[in-house]
Amino acid sequence: MEKPRPVIGPDNAFFWEGCKRRQLVFQKCKSCGHVRWPPAHVCPKCLEYDWEEIVSSGQGIIYSYVIYHFPYHPGFREELPYVVALVDLMEGPRVLTNIIECDSSALACDLPVEIVWDEEGEIPIPKFRLRKA
C-alpha cells in the first residue's frame, strides 16, 4: 500500500511548491519578523496578515524523536523501525519530520541535523540526517 501523500490546500501550497524546487520555505511576518510554522494566514505573534517567503538553510537540531515499531498505516510497514522527530530549524520553526540514513541508537536530543530530500514520490519530501561535526 502507498504512503499518504501531501494534501495541498491554499494554506500550505507555498510550502509544497518550495519542496518541488528542493527549497524549505516558510512564512515570515512582514510586520514583526516572526517565522511561523505551521502555515497560517495571520501571524500568531502579532496578528498581522502580510508575510513573505524565506528559504531555510535546512540546518537544525533535534528537539525530540521517537522510533516507530508499530505500523499504524500499512504504507509504513516495510519502513519499520523508522524515526519521527521534531527538528528546530536555525530560522526558528519547529518541524515534524523523519531522521533517515542513521542508526537510531546514535540519535539524541539537541544533535545537529541537515536536510536531505526524499525523492521517492512525486513531490520531494524534506527529511533530515545527522550532521557531521
Partner: peptide, 30 residues
Amino acid sequence: MLTSMNADEAVFGHFGAAAGYALAARRAMH
C-alpha cells in the same frame, strides 16, 4: 480516527497520540 488525523504528519508516518506523547516523554528524558 488516529490514521486520518493530520495529512501533513501522515506524510512522515506520524499518527495518533502515542507518538505525540512519546515525543514529549523523550524530551523529558533529555
